[in-house]
Write a protein that binds this DNA or RNA. Structure first.
Lengths: 195, 195
DNA sequence: CGCCGCATGTAAGAGGTTACATGATTCG
DNA sequence: CGAATCATGTAACCTCTTACATGCGGCG
């Protein structure tokens, strides 16, 4: 298993669109990649230091009138080369760890009504996500620097939307399954206390 | 943020269906929860020791003729109680870290044909997954111990299938978007070398 | 004055994978 | 005999989040 450090390249990639401070990098992760990637400041600052040690970025301290000073990191030629090499490599599959499904797998240990609550929470969350994605649609239209970039941003967003729709559809199916289970048990109450 | 140890409860949950060894627990994770949860032996053994220290499981060494001996862990009353309490709590949302989308987000740094390869790899992987899910459908039908358990297992599987279908649909959309981008650029080749 | 936003960093600690270490038994 | 499976465990090593520590400037 070719274990590469993804934070390293995620941060490096953020610098492609121009020199940035660690703080800027964090902002951009949250604003634009929030639905498929995240990095904390506790990862970003050390990553920038390491990138500098390795010569993939250069630093310059920027002094601004009446604003705190900050370090602007700029990607170097070597940085670009290494980034492109990383881009070409196959992506590792997403690690799956879904706590909701884990709990539902053990659903027979709880009340069906409790299981239903879990699903309703998921449904509410996915509805919110749907709105966010909707708002994002117009935002990337405005902010993309080129036709090419817009296409790739749309592709990334589209993935979120497809999965979001799938989760919403699943919530409906799951609710239906649990409701019919509750009807069955309500109609024919077998012994439950020692299950 | 109420940080609870999920491995602890995942392992504890595995013992609900009867006493098991650490090795058994690992098997069951792989066979039945593979698509939404995983635990390594390096987590499972220490987790069982801690569960024992905390009185949530009991141990018994099982001697078998001409087979290596093993430790059978059995969930205790307290274990069941704590497990049920954990089940009732809201599940943490899935942490998102999708390396494929990260690379595609930076797609304008590579050849569209390279981006296309990334998508085709994803598509191939999702096709395999689809077959696995299909096979799983009949397996849970055979192995569920009760009607109730079957419903919950079906709900968990259904989630995998919905998301799998969404990813396949996205692969098709993404391929189409990239192919039309390649046509545009092939027809009107603007300067590319310094992008 | 106190809080918020900007800005940089470190340290502690949890969580997680992999490799290592050991040993029995079974099957070809 | 050697490889695969069963079986248990530890150690090293990443990764990641959180909390802590510090300081400036603007705003109410």
């Amino acid at each position: 298993m070719p274990k590469v450090n993804r934070t390293r390249f995620a941060v490096l990639g953020m610098l492609l669109s121009g020199p940035k401070s660690g703080y800027d990098v964090k902002q951009e992760f949250e604003e634009r990649l929030g639905h498929f990637w995240s990095e904390s400041l506790g990862q970003i600052y050390p990553a920038l230091h390491r990138l500098h040690d390795d010569g993939l970025v250069s630093v310059k301290v920027e002094q601004r009138a009446r604003r705190p000073e900050r370090k602007l990191y700029r990607i170097t030629k070597r940085g670009r080369d290494e980034f492109r090499a990383w881009l070409a490599e196959p992506a590792a599959p997403v690690g799956v760890r879904n706590e909701l499904l884990l709990k539902l797998y053990f659903g027979s240990q709880m009340d069906p009504s409790q299981a239903l609550e879990h699903i309703e929470r998921c449904e509410a969350h996915q509805m919110q996500l749907r709105s966010l994605f909707k708002a994002f649609e117009s935002e990337i239209e405005r902010e993309a620097a080129s036709r090419e970039q817009l296409v790739y941003w749309r592709v990334a967003l589209l993935s979120g939307q497809h999965v979001n729709r799938a989760r919403l559809a699943w919530c409906r199916d799951a609710r239906a399954a649990l409701e019919s289970l509750m009807n069955e048990q309500g109609a024919a109450p077998s012994e439950k206390s020692h299950a």
